[in-house]
Design a protein around this nucleic acid. Structure first.
Length: 561
DNA sequence: GAGTTGTGCGCC
DNA sequence: AAAGGGCGCACAACTC
């Protein structure tokens, strides 16, 4: 059963639908949207049909209302447009409606900027404006999406077996479920102890400057850097540093850490320490704390499908780049625990499952895939096995990877062919898809390395740009399919946790954190393992490959792993 | 002064 | 000759 929902003022319009999207009852206006949704949800557990989970669902969750399932029309629209060769076209209901009618298509509204918590809290309680879209349009777009899924064209895909439509239905459902998780997780926030964070900063940086300048330890390093170089430099300016080193007779191409590490000069260790602390101060210092942590929680906004590969992005606070050192401040509430789960070696396992390479799949059944590879094909050299796998997935061909890659190619030709084929497709201007059918952007709309120049599609066939494109499509299949596995895990885990006090509080590509009462922690850990198994079965059926999760129950994030 | 690009580095 | 994918963010340096 489906129920279509369009917000309007503080209330909204609801209409029950049959599974194919045709009306199964009258439309009704409800003055209290959250209350009405709660009532229908507990009675019928329908799949909610709405334009955008990110726009609508926060208002419900803020009022304590959660739903089990939805169909997010905008996310589905984006997936379908990609599959139909119209990647990046506007995805709103208004745009989709205009396309159906053959009318000019309005562009999507620009993305909102990240809003620190506090500034935006009130607006979450604001009523909606007048109904943004007619409910009939919602129905028409949904019905059309169902037809379009059934009529999907054949495109290069990693998935040799599942029917296109079946895979896409799974993908749309998973993407929509992910959108529910994203809203709930963003509002829950990651438990964050500002006092612990502050103590950490003082320990590493010294006391903050009362006038807003660099903290004591950083200022001191700046002085020592000047002394070591024999001149005054602005340590944050790469250009100045290059000139200063040049005067000392050291020619550098850049001031990157890995380049400096090979330079023998007394200023280098000072500069490296300065860079590390400077970064901590600017990116995760006191102003970050003031801006993003409120009420003991770091609240990020998660954006499902925000990365073209299907990975999530975040807005605000750099939630996917929390430095290891700062994770000390992520502490469970008293009496609660953090269940931290990490899928180890996810991408090579995905390659093993996707390629259907029997030999690689056997290695993927092991707890340590690289070690298994090493035993079979790399004379026990685990490091070499890892270089080979990473090189194959990322497109590295030179340097010390070459001999390792040769061994990989010889021992695992089926997997090798899969990534090579993806790369060739990209280099020649073609499109690739993930296992469930997410399509990569065409070369003409890629925003990297000048793909968006006129004629870039032709230019990209060969030359450095073409090879860059090949590396992108090669990796897209693996990264995107890994994102799908993680998305399904997240959806299954959410379902398993429903009704408990446990809350999903963090998700980062292949890692998830649940905050729960200590007495629930063991069951939550079991639920995470079960969700991983379900994700494997749903995507890959009876594959031999395993996707082991490293699950730890800790009081603070930094104690995991 | 505002906006854009480049650099560098954090995470996966 | 060498050639690793995806991001977000902050700052410097640049353009207009």
């Amino acid at each position: 059963m489906l129920v279509a929902l369009v917000p309007s003022g503080a209330g909204g319009l609801l209409r029950p639908l049959a599974d194919d999207g045709t009306p199964a009852g009258p439309e009704r206006f409800v003055p209290d949207l959250a209350g009405a949704v709660a009532e229908v949800e507990s009675r019928d557990r329908p799949r909610w049909l709405w334009a955008s989970t990110a726009e609508i669902y926060p208002r419900l969750v803020q009022r304590g209302v959660r739903v089990e399932r939805c169909h997010d029309l905008e996310l589905a629209e984006a997936l379908l447009l990609g599959a139909e060769g119209a990647w990046g076209q506007p995805r709103t209901i208004a745009a989709a409606t205009a396309r159906l009618a053959g009318l000019p298509v309005p562009p999507d509204p620009p993305a909102r900027a990240a809003e620190p918590p506090g500034l935006s809290q009130d607006s979450l309680f604001d009523a909606f404006d007048a109904p943004a879209v007619p409910l009939d349009d919602l129905l028409a777009v949904y019905q059309a999406q169902r037809r379009r899924i059934e009529a999907l064209p054949e495109l290069p895909s990693a998935h040799p077996l599942a029917p296109r439509a079946g895979a896409m239905r799974t993908l749309v459902a998973a993407e929509s479920a992910g959108a529910l998780v994203a809203v709930e997780m963003g509002l829950a926030g990651l438990p964050w102890r500002a006092d612990v964070h502050d103590a950490l900063l003082r320990e590493l940086l010294g006391p903050p400057s009362p006038v807003g300048g660099p903290p004591a330890r950083l200022a001191e390093l700046g002085v020592r850097l000047n002394e070591a170089l024999g001149q005054r430099v602005h340590a944050d300016s790469p250009a100045e540093l290059l000139r200063a080193f040049a005067r000392a007779g050291i020619m550098l191409r850049s001031t990157r850490k890995w380049e400096l590490e090979h330079v023998d000069h007394p200023a280098v260790p000072i500069l490296l320490e300065y860079k590390e602390l400077y970064r901590l101060w600017t990116a995760h210092g006191w102003s970050w704390l003031d801006q993003w942590v409120t009420g003991g929680r770091f609240r990020a906004e998660y954006i499902p499908g925000g990365v073209v590969s299907g990975r999530w992005a975040t807005r605000g606070g750099g939630a996917l780049q929390i430095p290891k050192i700062v994770r000390r401040a992520v502490v469970a509430d008293p009496g609660w625990a953090l269940v931290v789960a990490d899928a180890g070696q996810l991408e090579p396992r995905v390659l093993a499952a996707v390629a259907g390479d029997r030999r690689l799949a056997r290695a993927g059944a092991a707890g340590d895939l690289y070690a298994a590879l090493a035993t079979e094909a790399f004379d026990g050299d685990r490091a070499k096995a890892k270089i080979a796998m990473l090189g194959a997935m990322y497109g590295q061909t030179g340097g010390n990877a070459a001999p390792a890659l040769a061994a990989l190619r010889r021992f695992y030709p089926t997997a090798w062919d899969l990534v090579e084929e993806a790369a060739r497709t990209g280099e020649s201007g073609g499109l690739v898809r993930t296992w469930l059918g997410r399509t990569c952007p065409p070369a003409s709309v890629s925003w990297r390395e000048g793909f968006d120049e006129p004629g870039a599609e032709v230019e990209s066939r060969g030359g450095a740009k073409g090879r860059a494109r090949g590396r992108f499509t090669r990796n897209f299949v693996i990264q995107g399919t890994a994102a799908e596995w993680a998305l399904v895990l997240l959806a299954r885990l959410r379902a398993a946790l429903a009704g408990r006090r446990a809350e999903l509080v963090f998700f980062q590509h292949d890692e998830v954190i649940v905050h729960c009462p200590q007495e629930e922690a063991q069951e939550v850990a079991a639920a995470v393992h079960a969700a991983g198994d379900e994700a494997r079965r749903l995507l890959f059926g009876d594959t031999e490959v395993r996707f082991p999760l490293d699950v730890t129950i800790v009081g603070r994030y930094s104690d995991a792993k």
